Amino acid sequence: MSGRTFAIGDIHGDVLALRKLLGRLPPLGAADTLVFLGDYVNRGPHSAEVVQLLRALPRLTPARVVTLRGNHEDAWLEIIDHGWPEFVLPRRYGCLESLRSFEGRPVPQPEEMPDERELSRLMRGAFFPRDVVGWMRALPYFHEDAHAIYVHAGLPLGPSGFLHPAQVDAPPRALLWLRDQTFFREYRGKLVVFGHTSTELLPPELSSYTPEDPADLWAGPCTVGLDTRCGRGGFLTALELPARLVYESRG
């Protein structure tokens, strides 16, 4: 019999929210699994600390720990391999926050731009330690167990319906980047738990969980969205399956 699975939404450099949420989960055992849905870096002030904690977790808990790739980790790998100034330069993506965190420097102001030295290092992702880059490259694109399919962004639509993650052509970047109202509204099948799209942007009329609060967890007919804007003014959310209990860092 499968143990419990705790799916945890986008963290975005907020290590305080991560610690608070982990402290609110019930005691975990070897049959349990923690599934992190990706987007550990950028925007929040403590990307390096988040990565450090996630990498240490397998030694700190008896539960299995699964850390999925998010589009922000994927973006940094693209920057490191090929460059991507269109992602680095807009301040809304929070790349400067990651650099400052990994270099142990002060958190930037919201509108602060990188200096010349920082810009050069940002453009190449040169501030990431080699072992962290290797860790990001090894992050899986999805996880599946008896309870659900877990993926960062969602499932793309194929000729005969929505594709299982294993059916998406490699590299399956659609699993990390898509924001498709068709998926949010029309997917029917095995439960899919995802992050990436802020819950306030998901169809509120379809949510069976606190529909009066669009910032909260979003629960559609066969999908659950967990990106409650952690690291950018929101909070971190976890869903326990199969009990469907909800845990939050706020309050």
Rank of each mutant, 00 (worst) to 15 (best):
V88P: 05
H152G: 07
S98T: 15
F128C: 01
R173I: 13
G83P: 08
F127H: 11
Q167F: 00
G158D: 12
H147K: 03
P129T: 13
V132I: 15
G94C: 00
E116I: 12
G104M: 01
P140R: 06
A126H: 12
H147P: 02
G158H: 11
R117I: 07
L99Q: 15
F162I: 08
S160G: 10
M123N: 03
E103F: 03
R91W: 00
W84Q: 14
E97F: 10
E111R: 14
P110M: 11
A138D: 04
M136C: 07
E112G: 02
P172S: 01
V107E: 06
A126F: 10
V168K: 00
A146Q: 14
R121G: 02
P159T: 04
G83K: 06
R173Q: 14
L157K: 13
H143T: 04
G125N: 09
L139V: 12
S101N: 08
R105F: 11
L163M: 13
Q109K: 10
V88Q: 05
E118Y: 05
R137I: 02
M136I: 11
H143I: 04
F128I: 02
L157T: 06
D145K: 01
G134Q: 15
E78Q: 14
R92T: 11
V132L: 09
R124H: 14
G94N: 00
G83Y: 07
F87S: 06
I80G: 05
F102S: 14
D81L: 05
I80N: 06
L89R: 09
L157C: 10
W84M: 15
A148F: 00
G125T: 10
L157D: 08
G161I: 14
R173F: 14
E86Y: 06
S98D: 06
H164L: 03
R121F: 06
S101P: 08
H164K: 01
L96W: 01
H164W: 03
P156R: 01
L122E: 03
L157S: 07
L119C: 09
A138T: 00
G134C: 14
S120D: 08
G104Q: 01
L89F: 07
P85T: 02
S160T: 12
R91V: 04
V88A: 06
P90Q: 03
A170H: 06
V168D: 00
P159Y: 04
M113L: 14
D115T: 11
R124N: 12
A146E: 15
E116H: 12
E118K: 03
P159H: 04
R137T: 01
A166P: 04
P110I: 10
H147Y: 04
D169F: 11
